[in-house]
Amino acid sequence: MKQKAPCLDALLGLVAGLGLIALYAPLLATGALSFFQIVRVRGTLGFAPFSLDPYVALLANGEILAALSTSLVVATVSSLLALVLALMFAFYFVSARRGLGIAMQIMVFLPFLLPPIITGLSLLIAFREIDLGRGLVTIIIAHVVFIVPVVYRTVLVRLQLLGSSLTEASLDLGASRVQTLRYVILPQLRPALISGVLLAFAISFDETLITLFVAGSQTTLPIRLWAMMRVGFVPEINALATLIFLCTAAITFAIGLMQRAGERV
């Protein structure tokens, strides 16, 4: 039996605690500053009383809300399109010959594995070659190309775990392939589909560098925040960051629940 090392356990716990503090202290500070603003009183810094003014100002800031709306539209549409394509690619991989399946996987994963600046520049050149003006459509296309691998990998792993026995049993019992897909395969893939879409949504919502190449006159929230860095942030940014953090935490929690549900099935 191995002996425990209390000192080592304490050291590892201390390192883990410091790591968590380094990760979450800025987020907690941002949340606190969205309710208690820093003010200067008689030459010294202090905190103003509790106030929801930054959240009220956020609701009145048309530019930030417009950028947020664009990001939500892009992330939603891109995630749904990526889900459809990922399903098609996953079904093709499990049924195609090995060489063709591997070639398809390389094509799917390559835009995600390349540096974002290369992916963004390549998409910009492609859009110019086909004379497609930059705007909302090009942003959605670029995001779909970037997030398809995320959904595809999630769906493929679940699909491979199912095997072919369910499909064969359904066909033997007289169901058509469409019925088998609708009533047998898709219900089994539901946790992977939902978790993949949520993860793709979070990645698309946060994407900045590729979007800069293909956005044109459209402004997403990350691009808007990037532009504001040069002139300084307004107080409502703390409120926006707090809301985004809470939504992201909720999405992450939902993904974890979906993955656990998929493992139990």
Rank of each mutant, 00 (worst) to 15 (best):
A22G: 07
M107V: 05
Y55W: 11
L59R: 09
F93R: 15
T30H: 05
L83N: 00
G43H: 00
L23C: 04
Q105T: 12
V41Q: 13
L52A: 09
R42G: 14
V74H: 05
P49K: 00
L33E: 12
A32V: 14
A25Y: 15
L85Q: 05
G62K: 15
L59K: 10
G62W: 14
R40D: 10
R97E: 12
S95A: 07
G43E: 01
A82N: 10
Q105D: 13
Q37P: 04
T76N: 00
L59V: 12
L68I: 10
F91K: 05
L27K: 11
L87T: 02
A103F: 04
L58W: 09
L27I: 09
T76Q: 03
T30N: 10
A75V: 12
N61I: 02
L23H: 00
D53H: 08
A67T: 09
T76A: 11
V41H: 07
F93Q: 14
L81P: 02
S51I: 03
L87D: 04
Y55S: 07
T30R: 08
I64F: 09
G31P: 04
I38T: 13
G46F: 00
G31W: 08
S79Q: 06
L27H: 08
L83T: 06
L45H: 05
V77P: 00
L81K: 05
V41W: 06
T30C: 09
D53M: 11
L52C: 04
A22V: 08
F93G: 06
L80C: 10
S51E: 01
F36W: 15
V74F: 05
L45R: 10
L87A: 03
F35C: 02
L65K: 11
A32F: 14
D53N: 06
M104P: 06
F35H: 08
I106H: 02
F50Q: 01
M104A: 15
A82H: 10
I102Y: 10
A48T: 04
G31S: 06
A82E: 11
A48D: 09
N61P: 02
L72I: 04
P54H: 04
A82Y: 04
F50L: 14
P26N: 09
S71G: 04
V84H: 03
A90V: 07
L27R: 14
L58P: 11
L72V: 04
G101H: 09
A86S: 15
A67V: 05
L68G: 13
A60Y: 07
A22K: 03
F89N: 10
G43K: 00
T70W: 02
L87F: 06
G31L: 11
L33P: 05
V39D: 02
F93E: 15
Q105C: 11
G101N: 07
F36V: 04
S71I: 01
S79K: 03
A90R: 11
F93K: 14
S51R: 03
Y92K: 13
A22D: 02
T44I: 15
S78A: 08
